[in-house]
């Protein structure tokens, strides 16, 4: 099997265990956009500390690991306008839809949640169209 797929599967298992810890431990759904968004718009003030700790782990753990292993290349586009537009779309979209790849995707699909599955279908379709349009038609990414 392709080593990238094995790393993907192993990393995926860790992501699922992370979600299981948050669910079985704190009784909460591990959705990155909801955890971060609640801090940004003030809607998550009642459990802000839990959110801050989650985000701290999410930032610090990869930082700590990459100090030893070296950091992988992220290949983020150098086109600043593309980055800004993409960031705005991701921020607005995930908050309007109440979830992203972790909340609707990982946590929703595993619960056989109808809304999670529908959200995932729409963001994958839109993501695919976006890549086709901006890469193959317009050539900007």
């Amino acid at each position: 099997m392709n080593p990238d797929w094995i790393m993907g599967l192993s990393g995926g298992l860790l992501i699922g265990i992370a979600g299981a810890v948050f669910l079985l431990g704190n009784g909460r759904i591990m959705g990155a956009s909801g955890i971060i968004g609640g801090l940004v718009d003030g809607s998550g003030r009642s459990n802000a500390m839990e959110r801050i700790m989650f985000v701290a782990g999410l930032f610090l753990a990869p930082l700590a690991v990459t100090l030893f292993t070296g950091a992988p290349e992220t290949h983020v586009t150098s086109n600043v306008w593309v980055i800004v537009a993409a960031g705005l779309l991701v921020g607005v979209g995930t908050r309007i839809a109440n979830g992203c790849t972790s909340g609707h995707g990982v946590c929703g699909i595993s619960r056989f949640s109808f809304r999670g599955i529908i959200a995932t279908v729409f963001y994958i379709l839109a993501g695919g169209l976006s890549v086709v349009l901006f890469r193959h038609v317009l050539g900007v990414i």
Binding site: A86, L89, V90, G93, A97, I118, Y123, L125, A126, I141
Partner: peptide
């Protein structure tokens, strides 16, 4: 919301 998110996700490859 999911369509907007997906469009940005494809554009930058980040969520």
């Amino acid at each position: 919301g999911s369509v907007l998110f997906g469009a940005g996700w494809g554009l930058a490859g980040l969520c």
